[in-house]
Design a protein around this nucleic acid. Structure first.
Length: 913
RNA sequence: GGGCGCUUAGCUCAGUUGGUUAGAGCAUUACCUUCACACGGUAGGGGUCACUGGUUCGAGUCCAGUAGCGCCCACCA
């Protein structure tokens, strides 16, 4: 076996072999288990969030596959309407062109070309992570099939009146030139101003320029540039201060237009002056107020964020923020500006380009969400879908219960074009395919709606559109609903909730059984990793510097459910070091099987046949009980426990706990203790003992390798082959997840918790002995002489069997093991250096030990009193579990014995002095 | 404004339904290049579990309150 672990070579080697061998494809045999990948943006490059998300999924997929499930993991990418259009537009700009110069058709063609050339980046990167997706099932949200699903769904909902078109105020990105859904707007704190502006009351004496009007009301606004669009000012109807204004009118500054004062509950009396200017075309609240009061909607802005003619000739064509300045200056000059206050508020930004959002009145398409939400809420309430961790279900409910209609139209070119057609007679209908003529009037001159659909309108169908819907495919029948959906909590509203709605509506069944929510990946300062912040650690660089396996393992052992992950470079050392450790112990085991003849005590070539090793990798093993040591029994039990524990954690989606259990087993239990202890047997003069020790190493390590595999697929595959657990053309990917030991095995081998307890206490003894060596400064090269004082004759006999091994650990001369009764009732360890022999207890600080024991007793005093009381108080028994009482009682006895022992020892020592 | 979460060793975090001595990794101290591994081994040091009160035989864990931090949602112009 290779001496050096070269992850790069290994990782480069295995992925193509796996893919070409069809190991990622479902077998069609066994119970189906499926999952769809959250499709990354086709423009995307792999970031830590993907690395975490996709590693979790791969762990699940590989684990389920090893459990014999028929695993289908569907990969794919999202066409990411605005993001992709932006990228291509940027490229065009370098050529000095705008998309309008190309025209719609040519532009879309250009985007497809871009996708062909660059769209595969993220998909390649997923491969370098080791993701075991079935690439033959790869889908793209703009694929022909998925586009059909989109059109089908749109038309169905259109016909059911679940989709409507309306002139509504929407979030508008002036830079992207399109509407955005509510959740595509990111609100950020803004240190702004509150301008206090005087609106003269109509009928009052008008002032002169530069001087305040005699009779005016004070309106506070954060957006003075919208003033030309005002069509009213509003007060709270219950506000006594302004009762006299009801029914009056005021004059709009600068234009002199007369607008009414209205009363509406929406106005907060406490904020600002208690008077609000109402601009129905440029503020969502004002829009609602305007509807209630029948106000005119004056749109004073263009789609690109500049003012239009309705803003007034002076401001026409001016950018909105320049206009703000100009209007404030003009208000000031006209004597309308009273004063300015600082004001901290929230301002919406485009989630794509971070431009400040404008509220804009425009004709848009909407989905009625309330009817869809009912079943989707029920699906989670009934437990048909669970969230892990469960607390996110509450987040989901809150959103669903306050759900608002979904604006699905976007004024861009890249995406699914809205399948609605119009004829010249004014007929309007939806159809999946472009019809030849109007179905109502037969007119041949028809045109399609110009808008495209929100990208999420294809994503929300992903769990069934990728399986072939609307066709009734075999995939759909076999793999829907999927098992798990993994994502970060920030996407519950965008995507998870909508998929549940779509699944319930169009499939009549939930899209997945469980939603696995993992944390958001953040940097050391707790910031979300993002390209714009430049703080993202590039997973590919980590893979380059460490390895994909290191990255994967480190991520898994760092991520607690639903808790954000804080990442720094040194995290990846954990995975790297663990990989190296596994490699080295494998090399050690392998060495004993293959480097026969190198020394007389090592195994000969016939010791462990290839076929036997392969069988051990299938958990097939026969052992000679006569040759078993307690250490063997212990590691067999611990390996069994580890497998059960890891399986349990994976079932609960506790990847961190699973990773830690594996790490602890492999490193601490297996390498640090069992392998070290097995060295004496491996070098024993008895060939049968050597063989059995080696068999156990292969068996236990083979089990560990398989459990590690979902976390570190490349390394484990390489070792699985190099150590001979399988032959060419085979794979650990398809090896069975380790089974539990049978009762018969446990019985015939004497595997029991009691043996584990003995071995563990023996290890404590060794640790104590090592501590003595350190304490006495005995050089590691120097053999010390230990006298082990056993608690009883039975223990003495047991320790005597392990004497050689213990001596090996302690680098000691042959041990002297005596029962405590033989040396005056003082159990413990003794050490001798040169000719001086001291019992262990004689080495400790007696007064300090007594104080420690005293503190212990003190701590337990209350409870011990309870134990005593228990004898006469039946009520106590029912409250404290019997085993706990028993434990405490034993502890009390031990403590008392300890005190007595130390007392006796102190006396002995005093006498000796 | 509403909702959720966090606060445990110098740092990053575990700690299932309350139950023996609160753990891990990194960092740190000492010793060791011993025939798998220095990306290693051995032995250590380091914690009033944010604070206050309560329930309990027993609280890091449950309850109430306080403080600080973070996230999500939201139309105070």
């Amino acid at each position: 076996m290779d001496k050096h672990y070269d992850p790069k070579a290994i990782e480069a080697k295995w992925y193509p072999i796996w893919e070409n061998s069809g190991f990622f494809k479902p077998t069609g045999q066994g119970e189906p288990w499926s999952m769809v990948i959250p499709p990354p943006n086709v423009t995307g490059i792999l970031h830590m969030g993907h690395a975490l998300n996709d590693t979790i999924q791969d762990v699940l997929a590989r684990w389920r596959r090893m459990q014999g499930r028929d695993v289908l993991w569907v990969p794919g990418t999202d066409h990411a309407g605005i993001a992709t259009q932006n990228v291509v537009e940027k490229a065009l700009r370098k050529e000095g062109k705008r998309r309008q110069d190309l025209g719609r058709e040519a532009f879309v063609e250009r985007v497809w070309e871009w996708r062909k050339q660059y769209g595969g980046t993220i998909v390649r990167q997923l491969r370098s992570l080791g993701c075991s997706c079935d690439w033959s099932h790869e889908r793209f949200t703009m694929d022909e099939g998925l586009s059909r699903a989109v059109a089908e769904v749109f038309c169905k909902m259109y016909d059911e009146d679940l989709i409507y078109r309306g002139n509504y105020i929407v979030n508008w990105c002036p830079r992207c030139g399109t509407a955005l859904a509510d959740d595509e707007v990111e609100h950020e704190a803004n240190h702004g101003h509150l301008w206090h502006i005087r609106y003269p009351v109509v009928g009052s004496a008008l002032g002169v320029k530069g001087k305040p009007y005699e009779d005016y009301i004070m309106v506070a606004t954060t957006r003075p540039e919208t003033l030309p669009g005002d069509t009213a000012v509003a007060v709270n109807p219950k506000d006594e201060r302004y009762l006299h204004l009801h029914g009056k009118s005021v004059m709009l500054p600068l234009s002199g237009r007369e607008i009414p004062v209205i009363a509406d509950d929406y106005v907060e009396r406490e904020f600002g002056t208690g008077i609000v200017k109402i601009t129905p075309a440029h503020d969502p609240n004002d829009f609602q107020v305007g509807k209630r009061h029948g106000l005119e909607e004056i749109n004073i802005m263009n789609g690109d964020g500049t003012m239009n003619a309705l803003a007034g000739p002076k401001y026409d064509g001016m950018d909105r923020f320049d206009c703000r300045k100009a209007i404030v200056e003009d208000l000031d000059a006209g004597g309308f500006l009273d004063h300015v206050e600082d004001d901290d508020n929230q301002v919406g930004h485009c989630y794509r380009c971070h431009t400040v959002i404008e509220s804009r009145l425009s004709p848009q398409w909407f989905v009625r969400m309330k009817p869809l939400a009912v079943k989707a809420v029920e699906a989670v309430r009934s437990g048909a879908i669970t969230f892990s961790p469960k607390r996110y279900e509450q987040t989901y409910f809150n959103w669903m219960e306050n759900i608002r209609d979904w604006c699905i139209s976007r004024q861009i070119w890249w995406g699914h074009r809205i399948p609605v057609y119009y004829c010249d007679c004014g007929h309007q209908w939806a159809a999946p395919e472009r019809p030849a003529k109007c179905p109502k009037c037969g007119a041949a001159s028809i045109r399609q709606d110009e808008d495209v659909l929100d990208t999420w309108f294809s994503s929300w169908l992903w769990p069934f559109s990728t399986l072939g819907w609307p066709d009734k495919t075999a995939d759909l029948a076999r793999y829907y609903p999927t098992a798990d959906l993994c994502t970060a909590p920030d996407i519950i509203f965008f995507w998870v909730a909508r998929m549940i709605m779509a699944g319930c509506k169009f499939m009549g069944d939930v899209p997945f059984r469980n939603v696995v929510l993992h944390g958001v990946v953040r940097d050391e300062q707790g910031r979300k990793m993002s390209k714009s912040l430049g703080n993202s650690l590039d997973p590919l660089k980590i893979i380059e510097e460490f390895s994909a396996d290191s990255l994967r393992f480190s991520l898994m052992q760092t991520t607690a459910p639903g808790i954000d992950v804080y990442i720094s470079m040194n995290k990846f050392e954990i995975g790297r070091n663990f990989g190296t450790k596994i490699w080295n112990v494998a090399r050690f085991i392998d060495m004993y099987a293959t480097q026969h003849g190198a020394s007389a005590t090592q195994l000969d070539a016939s010791a462990l046949q290839a076929a036997q090793i392969a069988a051990l990798g299938r958990d097939e093993i026969t052992l000679d009980p006569a040759l078993l040591t307690d250490d063997d029994r212990c590691i067999l039990a611990q390996a069994d426990d580890m497998v059960a524990t890891v399986t349990g954690w994976l079932e609960k989606y506790r990847f961190q706990d699973a990773a830690l259990a594996i790490y602890d087993f492999v490193w601490s239990k297996f390498c640090d203790w069992h392998v070290e202890g097995a060295k004496s047997a491996l070098n024993s003069a008895d060939p049968a003992a050597r063989l059995q020790a080696l068999k156990i190493l292969y068996f236990v390590f083979g089990r560990a390798l398989r459990v590690v595999h979902p976390f570190m697929p490349f390394l484990t595959e390489e070792l699985w082959h190099q150590m001979g657990f399988c032959g060419e053309g085979e794979t650990v990917m398809r090896a069975a997840w380790p089974r539990a030991l049978t009762d018969a095995e446990r019985e015939s081998w004497g595997v029991s918790p009691e043996v584990v307890a003995y071995v563990e206490s023996k290890r404590e003894l060794i640790t104590a002995g090592r501590a003595l060596r350190t304490q006495y400064g005995i050089a590691p090269s120097k053999a010390a002489h230990f006298i082990v004082v056993a608690a009883s004759g039975d223990v003495r006999d047991r320790l005597s069997r392990d004497a050689a091994m213990i001596a090996g650990f302690l680098r000691a001369e042959p041990l002297e093991i005596v029962a405590s009764a033989d040396v005056g009732g003082m159990p413990g360890t003794a050490v001798s250096v040169g000719s001086i022999h001291l019992p262990l207890a004689g080495l400790v600080d007696i007064p300090a030990e007594l104080a420690k024991i005293g503190a212990e007793l003190d701590k337990n005093k209350k409870f011990l009193a309870g134990v005593v009381a228990k004898l006469s108080n039946e009520g106590f028994v029912s409250r404290a579990p019997a085993n706990v009482v028993e434990q405490q009682r034993q502890r009390k006895v031990e403590l008392e014995a300890e005190i007595a022992r130390l007392d006796a020892l102190a006396a002995t020592l005093r006498k000796a002095e």
